[in-house]
Design a protein around this nucleic acid. Sequence first.
DNA 1: TTGTAAGCGTTATCAA
DNA 2: TTGATAACGCTTACAA
Lengths: 352, 352
Amino acid sequence: MTDNKMRKPVRDVTIADVAEKCGVSIATVSRVLNRKGRYSVETQRRVEAAAREIGYAPNHMAKSLKRKRTEQIALAISDIGNPVYVAMAKSIQQVVKDHGYRLILLSTEALVHEEIGILKSMAKHFADGLIISPLLYSEEHRKWIKRLKQPVVVISGIAEETDVDSVLVDSGHGIRLAMEHLLSQGYSRVAFINGPSQTVPGRARLNGYYSALVEHNLPIDEGLIIDGGDFTLSGGYMTASRLLEISPRPEAVICANDLMALGVMRYLGEKGLRVPRDMAVVGMDDIEHASLAVPPLTTVSLLAAERGRMAAELLMERLEGSSDAPPKQVKVLPKLVVRESSVVVETVTGGA
Amino acid sequence: MTDNKMRKPVRDVTIADVAEKCGVSIATVSRVLNRKGRYSVETQRRVEAAAREIGYAPNHMAKSLKRKRTEQIALAISDIGNPVYVAMAKSIQQVVKDHGYRLILLSTEALVHEEIGILKSMAKHFADGLIISPLLYSEEHRKWIKRLKQPVVVISGIAEETDVDSVLVDSGHGIRLAMEHLLSQGYSRVAFINGPSQTVPGRARLNGYYSALVEHNLPIDEGLIIDGGDFTLSGGYMTASRLLEISPRPEAVICANDLMALGVMRYLGEKGLRVPRDMAVVGMDDIEHASLAVPPLTTVSLLAAERGRMAAELLMERLEGSSDAPPKQVKVLPKLVVRESSVVVETVTGGA
DNA sequence: TTGTAAGCGTTATCAA
DNA sequence: TTGATAACGCTTACAA
């Protein structure tokens, strides 16, 4: 209301301005503002007052250049729409913030060249460290990660590479847990809807499915395997129709992730099939939507939040401590979470 | 395998190394690498070869300091777990990338002091521009935004502030659309589950509910209003019980967003109530899950993706063009999306 | 067409 | 306890 046409000042206020303002050198100002070195209380008072008064804010670019650190951590994930990555991001955020870093989230939209692009720009020093959960682990990934000066932590499936810190979870084993559970419930014809099979998680899960079959002396029927597309809700929904084309109809289906499982359940619901009575459904990831689905979805937790936390801690350790310790691989075990979408419904007659 | 203990080089390769390598000055290297100014083809060849050979990557901090631009845009959103913000982020990402900027996503976890923190650190020049969708618009927000040198675009409800570029949507009007629709379907006792009522969207939606009642000469019954907590799935689920405590039971419910509506539908489902037969449900936002819910959820789209795109374009315009043009406010109209969760089910007897 | 040199805003190493 | 001053790695006049 009162401010008439006052343009924002064109040059911004620097350390030199506050130095001049209170008649000390820029060195002193820097010392006071960073609480480094020695200075009198009186000087401190004056510098701080001056800084506040003229609205000084340290220039992050200059600081970074000089200190050779940006105080930023980059997190590269393939899809911010996927609750699993959201969970990871949140726990990572927590850890890095506690250590004084800002987390910057980079979404690659599942594009490999975007991932590589991020790796490349790490070389340009726009962050001090990187946590990446690559969909693919190509030779190019390896090459770039090796070349980087900053520490990198990979969140992935089983170890593709032992040269780099990583947090691993064997999602294939998760699929085996799911299969075991279904068999124990009496289901034996179990279909599998996979995500993109060329990706690391896609491949791991498919292999898990195969080895579960082998493990239990079940026949391998390629007709029971559906390539689901893209790990999304609508991906699951859209491929579900192919599930119903299989004949005889499978008794249960394992989906490569919860989002797809949810999509499948919805399709089944629309077609009038009841879960688990007409078909049992198991997912993977244990996202929030899973527990609130109707019926609540049985799933295999891959402990996303915990993996995130661990990855962040690994990174902080590198950043703050022994940067030349040998690479660490920390493993996490998938955990079966049984809910109603996969348990045989007995006639409820009150249990004793 | 072959690489024995070769430590990553401690100093990284600079423009000076390239210059030395091919016997030209650093100025020439800079010119070639930035394709600026004049140089012979021969020089270009040599510089480029040398750069590639010794693995030169421009130092982003130095470049930023000199050029006074980071080539980064910050996007501050309150919850990366909310699909609405994801949709926004994706379309913003698209636009800024096309203009050569990197988008960095900052999640405030709905904490106001985090929002302010981001505003403050903008003053430190860690990004060239900011898009923010504040939950609250306090005096402190205003103060900081005004002080910033970088352009800021606010994505919000109805204009709180005309001093800054903004993309607005009147979500209160959206609630009115929902109400109108429900009334047209014959529902008249309509409850309202709100998100946090101290937030901008919370307040706007509540006001929308009131004015819809007034508009249609309906009695205002505070008993029909539930403060839902936090705009999340489980928030909706958990408050749904209070919905059923209202007596007589409302015929329909409008939820302040889809996530909460989905939570409500699940609760109702568990309690054996059928939607819309026993209670109609309408949400807001039109997230992907809404169309795939059972039954598909009627909702009011607030055009998140489009608002994101517009905000980004506004920002790019500021950055590339007339930075002293008067602030722009662009408005977007909420749109009703009718699905099955709110339409009275006639006995289906085949249409003409 | 190329090179020299002056910054960008800091931090940090010296002396004073 | 303070102040000059030299970097940090780059861009960009200005000269040559």
